[in-house]
Computed example of a mutant assay.
Amino acid sequence: MENSSLFFNFNLTMFVNIGSYRYPAFVFCLLLFAMIVSANLVIILVISQQRTLHEPMYFFIVCLSINSLYGSAGFFPRFLMDLLSDTHLISHSACYIQIYVIYTYACNELTILSVMAYDRYVAICQPLHYHTKMTLKTVSNLAAFAWICSAIFNITLTSLTAKLPLCGNKIHKVFCAMWNISKLSCVTTVINNIVGLLLGGTTVSFVVSYVFYTYIRIILVCRRSSSEFKGKALQSCLPHTVTFLIYSITGFSDVALSRVNIEQLNPYVAVILSLEFVVIPPLLNPVVYGLKLPEIRKHLKPLKAG
């Protein structure tokens, strides 16, 4: 057994040697990062400056955009450096910080989407009580709850992972991940697995079940309503549905990738699959909400004209 004290850094081994193509790849990824930052900042600025958009639904959209900026900041700077580097070593402290940021980004996205499902449920199924239930205090508490739960879960899981004695330093990914580090442990990870399953499994199961429940209730209400009401409900719910599906598909891809033998996959396919989760939702969320919600789209037109 190798002595875990010999490893002062982790080695991210999924980076493919693309030779001189690293520079076009760097420029492309830098442009992606710039697009993510610009698109989400535009959504935040438009909603914050327009008083007509100071409503719960738009407040939660701002939360999504802030979370996208947070997650992208935890991934892209390090990834861009690695694209230009011949070695892909990352210190233990930097690795665990990246794990915390990326995993809280993932949890925040999930909890915010569940809160948004509740907001749409109240707006469509209980419209007369909407402003009574969705007060500024309630909205603030729901947003705080989403962020605090994510922070507590990930502080717990990251701390447990950081305490594991390691007998290797190779992480088969382009960024640090808990599961990959756990596989390097010299000792059993039963406690980590149980805690991770309880926290992660319970959270995901509850959120997915709750989102499905709210949409079933919304569908039942729409069936008994006029065509005009159905159209407005669909227009209101469609961006959230698309966003939730994007998150679910990319999240599932990332989980599935961590459970298979990476070495049996085409290296380029493996890299693309590993990037989906940290690139696609932050890039597409502002596009979906900017194009699908008429109130935001209306205020974006003057910016385009300018």
Results as ranks from 00 to 15, higher is better:
225 S>D: 04
84 L>M: 14
15 F>T: 11
71 G>P: 08
296 I>L: 12
16 V>Q: 05
251 G>R: 11
43 I>A: 09
256 A>D: 11
238 L>I: 12
97 I>P: 01
255 V>D: 02
191 I>R: 05
32 L>Q: 03
136 L>R: 13
172 H>K: 14
207 V>D: 05
249 I>L: 14
61 I>V: 15
121 Y>V: 04
156 T>Y: 09
251 G>K: 13
303 L>I: 15
154 N>G: 02
210 Y>N: 10
304 K>V: 15
181 I>H: 03
173 K>G: 06
243 T>E: 05
47 I>Q: 07
202 T>P: 00
217 R>C: 14
97 I>N: 03
147 W>D: 00
67 N>V: 10
199 L>G: 01
196 G>H: 05
229 F>W: 13
161 T>M: 07
87 T>Q: 08
122 V>M: 07
1 M>T: 04
279 V>E: 02
146 A>I: 06
17 N>A: 11
186 C>T: 02
96 Y>N: 01
141 N>F: 08
37 V>H: 02
256 A>Q: 15
191 I>D: 04
154 N>H: 15
160 L>A: 12
64 L>S: 07
17 N>R: 10
56 P>M: 14
33 F>N: 02
49 Q>R: 15
94 A>H: 02
139 V>M: 07
99 I>E: 04
153 F>P: 00
91 S>M: 08
87 T>M: 06
138 T>V: 12
37 V>Q: 01
129 H>I: 00
238 L>Y: 14
157 L>Q: 09
78 R>H: 10
176 C>V: 03
134 M>Y: 08
163 K>Q: 10
16 V>I: 08
171 I>M: 14
176 C>Q: 00
130 Y>R: 15
159 S>R: 10
163 K>V: 03
15 F>Q: 09
64 L>A: 04
274 S>I: 00
137 K>E: 09
216 I>F: 06
118 Y>S: 02
142 L>V: 01
255 V>M: 12
62 V>N: 14
74 G>P: 04
1 M>W: 05
130 Y>K: 15
6 L>I: 06
132 T>K: 13
41 L>W: 12
72 S>K: 10
42 V>H: 05
247 Y>E: 04
32 L>C: 13
87 T>W: 04
42 V>P: 09
198 L>G: 02
261 N>K: 12
20 S>Q: 12
259 R>N: 13
52 T>Q: 12
105 Y>C: 03
145 F>L: 12
14 M>H: 07
86 D>T: 10
173 K>T: 02
111 T>K: 00
127 P>F: 07
115 V>M: 10
165 P>F: 14
102 I>N: 00
219 I>Y: 11
302 P>M: 10
132 T>G: 12
169 N>A: 13
146 A>W: 03
186 C>V: 05
274 S>F: 01
235 Q>S: 14
147 W>E: 03
36 I>E: 00
32 L>D: 05
183 K>D: 14
35 M>S: 04
93 S>C: 08
138 T>Q: 06
287 V>K: 03
100 Y>C: 01
130 Y>H: 15
68 S>D: 03
154 N>Y: 13
241 T>R: 11
195 V>G: 01
286 P>S: 10
284 L>R: 02
127 P>K: 11
303 L>V: 12
120 R>S: 05
